[in-house]
């Protein structure tokens, strides 16, 4: 069994894995970039002297 020989329908198999990896990478990028943006917005607001209600601690 040669895992690198995917037979006559290799294109379909590779396309499936490529699309799945791309979508999952997109989801990971979404949560990471969103977090970065939100942390930036929180820091900017705190620098302006706006405090959070009930004095919650900042999250990383």
């Amino acid at each position: 069994m040669d895992p690198f020989d995917l037979g006559p329908h290799a294109g379909f198999i590779i396309a499936c894995y490529f699309i799945t990896i791309s979508v999952v990478a997109g989801l990971i990028a979404w949560v990471v970039l969103d977090r970065r943006q939100l942390n930036k917005a929180l820091n900017e607001l705190e620098e302006q002297g706006i405090k959070r209600a009930r004095g919650n601690q900042a999250q990383s």
């Binding site: 942390n39 929180l42 607001l45």
Partner: peptide
């Protein structure tokens, strides 16, 4: 992230 977004909104 959503909890943080709501905090930003409130602030």
């Amino acid at each position: 992230n959503e909890v943080l977004r709501r905090r930003v909104r409130t602030m």
